Amino acid sequence: MKKIKLYTAGLLVMILANACKKNLDTYTGQNNIYFNEAGRLPAFNGEVIRDSTVMSFSLAKNTDSVVNMIIKITGAVSDQDRSYKLVIDPVSTAIPGKHFDALPQTFSIKKNKLQDTVKIKFHRTADLQAQNYTLFFKLVANENFSTEMVDKLINATTGQRLSFIRYRWFLNDIVKKPGRWTDGYLGVFTRKKLSLLAQVLNVEPSYLDTSVSIAEITAYGKFMQRYLNEQKAAGNTIYEEDGSEMIMGSLVQ
């Protein structure tokens, strides 16, 4: 029995020794480049991965916004910077220098890195209130990276595909009524009223879309009606864009 144990132990040592001599397999495919937002895994169950983003200022207080667009690659890191080609599709309608800051002429994956972050600064211009503008990007193959990871089918019925090498931004400031806006307390929704409420109460308009409670909505309505009454008593009646006097909801009168 002792001899069997010694033989088995010796056999295991030989197997381990041979395994250590073998080189580990490394990635040998092409270095593909793609938009991370389209190629990443879902962050939670049921999340829909997209190759586009709507950049809307409608529920924002700020006049511009900086967003990150992450570019990733497959393959191993390099000890040198590697340039990649990112171009704006000429069908885009957003104007550089007006709707967004002009981007750098060159882009690169830095040494020892597998991704790059492109920062886009969008501007809230008056014309965004009337129409949507678009900013479409495309990754193009060069001497460092291929674009063979093109897309994947996500709906066999409609033929819809998710692109890994094209990404679209839709830009607007078209007014949107917050999801939790309650007319009984806040009155008829208008862009001017939302802006004034955000200013007076120091509340982010986006907070009214998903997070605000009924108790808060009630308090907001009462406070704003008192504010409007005080302004009127001081000879500074606040009017809506159509010339009508601004009032809050019937439940706070």
Rank of each mutant, 00 (worst) to 15 (best):
D81R: 05
W181N: 09
A76P: 06
P42Y: 06
F223E: 15
E240A: 13
I120L: 12
L208S: 14
R161N: 14
N112G: 10
T117E: 11
F137P: 08
G243I: 00
T210Q: 15
S244A: 09
D151V: 11
L208H: 10
A17Q: 03
E245D: 08
E47G: 08
K21D: 12
S83L: 13
Q231Y: 00
T147Q: 06
K22G: 12
I109D: 15
T28Y: 02
Q225R: 03
A198N: 03
D64R: 12
Q225V: 05
I73E: 12
Y207P: 05
V200C: 01
D89A: 08
K121G: 03
I247T: 15
A43L: 15
V200D: 03
E148T: 14
S195C: 06
G184E: 10
L162Q: 02
F145R: 09
R191M: 03
D101V: 03
Q115C: 04
S83F: 12
K85P: 03
Q231S: 06
P90H: 04
A234L: 04
A126C: 06
F145S: 07
E245K: 02
I238N: 01
N144G: 04
D64N: 14
E216Y: 10
F145E: 00
T218S: 13
P104Q: 05
Y185E: 05
A102E: 14
T134M: 06
E37A: 14
N68V: 13
I4W: 10
M55D: 04
S65T: 10
R50W: 08
I154N: 11
V203F: 04
S250G: 13
P42N: 07
Q115K: 06
S195V: 07
I49G: 00
M149Y: 12
H123Q: 08
L201V: 07
S244W: 02
T28H: 04
A233E: 01
D209Q: 01
V54K: 14
G159H: 07
L128M: 01
P104F: 06
G97K: 00
Y34I: 08
W181G: 05
A17T: 07
